[in-house]
Amino acid sequence: MHTESGGSLPDVTICAEPGPVIFQGSFVTVVCSKSGDYDTVRLEKDGSIFMEKDSEPSMREDRFHIGPVNKTITGHYHCFYRKGNTWSNRSEKLELKVIKEHVTQVPAPGPTMTSGTVIKVYTLEISVRMGVAGLVLLILLVILTEACCNHEEHHRLKCQNTVNR
C-alpha cells in the first residue's frame, strides 16, 4: 500500500528515452524524476515491481536502462520513491510499446525538444562543419597547385637562362 506524502500534485514524473515506442532489439531508458529526497526508487510494470534501486539523494532523477527490448517490455509503468516507510505519490502512467518496424514519431505541437530533435540538430551542425572543412581543403589544394606550378615555371626559366649564357 502506498502512502501519499504532501499535497495533491504528484512529485514524481516518468518518461522514456528515446520515447515510449521502441523498436524491438533496441534500448530504452525509463527516467524517474523526483522533487524531494528519497532513499529508494521503484519502477512498477502493470502493478508489479519491475525494478528497484537506491536513489541518489543529490540527483533529481533516476534512470533504468532496459534492453535489448522485446514484446515482454510492452506495458504500463509507474515510478514511486520511498523515504523510510513513506512512499511518494505515484507518477503518471507511462505506456511502453515495443514494435517490430521502425515508426517515426510525430512530435507534439509546441516548443518541445526531444532527443530525436537534438540528434537532428547535431547532424545538421556536423554536416555544415564537414562542408566548410571540404571547402577549406579545396582552397588549400588550389593554393598548393598554384604554388607547384609557379615553382616549376620558375625552375624552367632558371634552366633556360643558364643554357642561354
Rank of each mutant, 00 (worst) to 15 (best):
I49S: 08
G110V: 14
T104M: 10
G134M: 09
S127Y: 04
T74R: 08
L140S: 08
M130H: 03
I49F: 09
S48D: 14
L140E: 14
E146T: 12
E153M: 05
M59V: 00
L141I: 11
I143Y: 00
V106N: 02
V103M: 14
Y77I: 00
T114H: 14
E44D: 12
E56S: 06
N85T: 08
L96F: 01
H76D: 04
A147P: 02
T114L: 10
H154A: 14
K53P: 01
I126N: 06
P107F: 11
L135Q: 10
N164M: 11
V163Y: 00
Y122C: 04
G116C: 13
T145R: 12
R82D: 13
I126T: 12
K97A: 13
H102V: 13
V132G: 10
A133I: 14
E125H: 12
I126F: 12
V69C: 02
S35G: 08
S127C: 06
W87H: 03
E125S: 11
H155V: 02
F80S: 04
L140N: 00
L144M: 13
M113T: 15
V132N: 13
V132W: 00
I126Q: 14
D37A: 11
D46Y: 02
T72P: 01
I66V: 11
V128N: 09
R60D: 15
V121K: 07
E101P: 06
S91I: 09
T145I: 08
L124N: 10
L144V: 04
T114A: 07
I49V: 06
R90L: 09
T74N: 01
M59G: 07
T104R: 15
V69T: 08
D46E: 10
S88R: 02
E44W: 07
E95G: 12
G36L: 03
N70W: 09
K53V: 01
S91W: 01
L94D: 02
H76W: 12
F80H: 06
H151Y: 13
I126P: 04
E153T: 13
E125D: 09
C79M: 11
V136Q: 09
G47M: 07
S115A: 02
K45G: 03
C159L: 14
M51L: 04
T104L: 10
I99L: 01
N70I: 00
G134D: 03
E101L: 08
E44I: 09
S127F: 05
S88N: 03
P111D: 00
C79H: 04
S115W: 10
L135G: 09
A108C: 02
E44A: 11
C149P: 15
E61D: 12
S55V: 15
T104V: 15
